[in-house]
Each structure stands twice: as structure tokens, then as C-alpha cells.
Amino acid sequence: MELGLRHLQVVVAVAEAGSISRAAASLRIAQSGLTAQLGRIEREFGAPLFLRRPHGVEPTDLGTHVLHGARLVIGQFDDLIATARTRAQGGGAATIRLGGVDSPWISTVAAALRGLRPDHEQITYVEDDSGEVVDLVRTSRLDLAVITEHPDAPAPKPHGLIFRDLGVEPLLVGLHVDHPEAGRDRIRLAHLAEYDWIAPADKAGGLRQSLRTACERAGFVPRFRHFGADHGTAATIVGSGTTVGLFPMSSPPVPDVVLRPLAEEPLWCRTMLVWRPGSPLASVATDVVTMASDERFRTRKPFLVVEPDPADYRRAM
């Protein structure tokens, strides 16, 4: 059997479904047929891609490697189809490929690009890890990207790429307006030891690692109970109960949610724009930085009672 794109799509479908039976239902094929096909795919790769568990399947180390590459290949193929169709329909303008980790800055950068290149189609990719994003820029699969870094987790900076700061801002604790700690001007992490936390994305700039380290310094291990939520979903979860989470200072207001600065050593987020010197957007990238930074801090109003002291996060500068 010669491996092809459809086989990679099968592997991704099984991983995303979490079980062969659910994947078979989504692919509209018999479970026995999918099981046999997956077995042939695994033999071609030389080892199992998934561990079969009572509750479903989990990727092996090899499976994780294959999944990472498969998603890149499938994404490139989808990009090829989309851009080819655009050109076939007479749209000769180039396509801007913007990427990054989950961050409110992505929409701001996208708006700046639309202002500078209004005749260009724009495609945006959101990845899980700043390292993956940088690799996509380095290999010319992204023209421009937004990455982040946090305390104890510096962003990757391969030689040959250009990095420019968009801004450094404190990360604030988000609580329900009736939360017992919501009335304080500043929050001590130790006071949140008994509450459930929303876990930041596992790899997004090392934020989960930084939060866990800060909590351990405060004497406890954070009790993560919610995983995989983006900023908007996380805020909604916080607004519905006693769960707490971390949010950028410039986050837009959410009903029933208040943000409070930390009293101890602060957590912060540095956001950067990265591109290749030979990128199609290299000539306007500096303008994007200026426009995005100006717009971001002009229009985003933090919804907190006490402004954090800039000295709290000066070590990030």
C-alpha cells in the first residue's frame, strides 16, 4: 500500500474523535473497515500510531509525530486548493498567510494587514505552540505570525528571523463578580488554592508552566479542571461559577467577570510579531507592528478596578 493524503486524513480523524467507533461514524464507514484500514496504515509506518484503551485511543509517540506532520500536510493541501480556486476565478492578488497562537492580538494584526493590503486575500491559522508557529514562518508556510512568551518560558528565536515586540502586559486573575476574592484590589495566589482553575493551553508560550510554577511558589498546585478553552470560552466559564483563570489586561469586558492584578510576583505576557526577511510582507511588517500596537492600546480598555503598577512586570521588558 502506498500512503497518501487520504490515509493522513484517517489518522487525524481517529485522533480528533478519540475512538475508532466515533471516527468511523464521522467518516461514514463501517467500524470494522476503519479498524482494518488503520491497521494497514500503521504497518506502513512500521509501528502502532495509537494505543487502544477501554475508553478509546491515545496517540503513541510515533502517532504524535505523524499527527503533527499530517496536520501540516493537510493544511498545506487545503491552502493550495483555496488559493488555486481563487486564481482560477480571476483573483490574481496574492494571499496573506497569517498565523499565531491563541491571542487577542491576532485579530488586531489581521485588521492592520487589511488596512495595508486591502486587495489581498487573508488566511489565518491558529496553532497550539509558539515553536510550531516559528517553524511555519521559518519554512515559508506563514508570511507573518503572532507568538507569545511568559515568565520561565522564553519564546523560540531561531537565527535568521525578525522579531518585534507588540507589547508586554500583565496577566490578571479573572473571577466571577460574586467570587469571595472578587472584592479585593489585588489577589494573592495562595487565596485561590481551593478553587478550580481553567488550564491555559498546554504549549501556548509556556503559560500553563508559568502559572503552575507561580502557584507552587505560593504553596499549592493549581487544580486544573477545564482544558482547551480559548480566551472567550474561558471567560464564559469564569462568568458562570467559581472557576478562576488568567487573562490579558487588555481583554474585552465579559458580563459577571472581573479582573484583578496579582499581589505577588506577577505573571505577564509578551506578544511578538515574527517574519522572514524575504517574506512577501517584510516591507510592511514594521508598519503592521506600529498600527497594531497603536490600535490595540487605543481601543482595548481593561475592566479592572485597580491598574497594575507597571513596575510589577518591568522584568519582562
Rank of each mutant, 00 (worst) to 15 (best):
M1C: 09
M1D: 13
E2I: 14
L3Y: 10
L8W: 06
Q9A: 13
V11Q: 03
V11F: 03
V11K: 01
S19V: 00
S19W: 01
S21M: 03
A25C: 03
A25Q: 15
S26D: 10
S32A: 13
L34M: 04
Q37L: 13
Q37P: 05
E44D: 14
E44M: 09
F45H: 08
G46C: 05
P48N: 07
L51W: 05
L51C: 05
P54G: 07
V57E: 00
T60H: 06
T64W: 07
V66G: 09
R71Y: 05
V73N: 09
I74D: 13
G75R: 10
Q76G: 14
D78I: 00
D79R: 13
A94N: 11
A94S: 09
G99S: 04
G100A: 03
D102S: 13
W105L: 02
S107D: 15
A110K: 08
G115Q: 13
G115F: 02
G115C: 08
P118L: 01
P118G: 07
P118K: 01
H120N: 15
E121Q: 12
I123W: 11
Y125M: 14
G131C: 10
T139C: 11
L144V: 09
I147R: 06
H150N: 15
P151F: 01
A153E: 10
P156V: 02
P158F: 03
H159I: 10
G160V: 03
G160S: 11
F163K: 02
R164M: 11
L166P: 11
L166W: 02
L166V: 02
G167F: 02
P170V: 02
L172M: 14
G174L: 07
V177C: 10
G183N: 03
D196E: 15
A201G: 12
K203I: 01
A204Y: 06
A204V: 02
Q209T: 12
S210E: 09
L211K: 07
R212I: 07
A214Q: 14
R223I: 03
R225A: 14
R225T: 15
G228E: 11
A229K: 12
T236K: 13
T236S: 13
I237D: 11
G239I: 02
T243Y: 03
G245W: 05
L246W: 02
S250I: 03
S250M: 06
P252W: 03
P252K: 05
V254R: 15
V258P: 08
P261M: 01
P266Y: 01
L267P: 15
C269T: 15
L273F: 04
W275R: 11
R276K: 12
G278T: 10
P280R: 04
A285L: 07
A292I: 01
S293T: 15
D294P: 09
R296Q: 13
K301C: 12
F303R: 14
E307P: 12
E307I: 09
P308V: 02
P310L: 02
A311T: 12
Y313Q: 12
M317F: 14
